[in-house]
């Protein structure tokens, strides 16, 4: 489903290279975990996947379902099913969460040539999804992410993911800021979306999340490269020993 080949990317503004020859393959139905020390380029990779223009790809390619997506803008990629749950969700003052959801869902439908949702249909979907994630419906009337607690923001991200039904889900540290109960609820939400035609990339620092969302593959990202790939036991190994050994081997 996703094939990243020898990807090099730098910050457009000052030319600093962040991603330095990264290779990664994620198959449909797979859950891939990406781990790595702070500042290694995990969030940057997620931004590049979703087309943020602050980064320039200088070499390599990203194939999504066999198609090179580097020329597509972020909204086009979103309409094709790429979703990013942000590490730091952004506040949109004055725009009710509900309204935002409706605009996003309908814009994606429009881009795919589908009919817009009727209001009752939309309401039903939102209510169901919010209930699954134990989100208080009153929160949906509030402006998106404005004054939401850390955990509420992360839950709102997963709510959007559930409603937009993407094909490639990228979760950037969705576990940070969640209490133990919320972690379970969010993990259940993610697992509920699992399907043979959907892939998930989970970026995290902690094994704890991977107890709930069990990965098929685990990749270690360091200085803009994947330096090690393994199965779920790799995460346990990192939890026990830290990154030092793996980094040492790679160097």
């Amino acid at each position: 489903m996703l094939e990243i080949k020898n990807l090099h990317a730098r910050i457009a503004e000052d030319g600093t290279e962040i991603i330095r020859g990264l290779n990664l393959t994620v198959k449909a139905g797979e859950v891939a975990a990406i781990m790595g020390p702070n500042g290694s380029g995990k969030s940057t990779l997620s931004y590049i996947l979703s087309g943020r223009e602050d980064y320039e790809v200088t070499e390599g390619e990203i194939l999504y379902n066999g198609e090179n997506i580097l020329e597509l803008d972020p909204a086009e990629r979103a309409a094709k099913g790429i979703f990013l749950a942000f590490q730091y969700p952004v506040e949109i003052p004055g725009v009710a969460t509900m309204q935002f959801l409706k605009v996003a869902m309908n814009e994606q439908r429009k881009a795919r040539g589908e009919a817009e949702l009727t209001t009752p249909d939309f309401m039903r979907r939102v209510k169901e999804a919010a209930a699954e994630l134990k989100i208080n419906p009153d929160m949906l009337k509030r402006p998106l992410n404005v004054g939401f607690s850390g955990g509420e923001k992360k839950r709102a991200e997963i709510l959007q993911m559930a409603l937009l039904e993407p094909k490639l889900c990228v979760l950037d540290e969705t576990d940070s800021g969640l209490d133990i109960d919320a972690l379970k609820i969010v993990a259940d939400g993610v697992n509920a979306l699992k399907s043979p035609d959907r892939a998930t990339i989970v970026i995290t620092h902690y094994q704890r999340l991977l107890d709930y969302i069990v990965p098929d593959t685990v990749h270690v990202l360091y200085k803009g490269q994947i330096i090690r790939t393994g199965d779920k036991s790799l995460a346990l190994e990192l939890e026990a020993n830290g990154y030092a050994d793996i980094i040492g081997e790679a160097a």
Binding site: Y47, S50, G51, R52, D73, P74, A75, A78, A79, F83, L84, F86, P89, V90, I92, F100, V103, A104, E107, Q108, A111, Q160, L164
Partner: peptide, 9 residues
């Protein structure tokens, strides 16, 4: 960017 990522042009 947040809006674009959600498919809003």
């Amino acid at each position: 960017f947040y809006c674009l990522q959600r498919g809003i042009p």
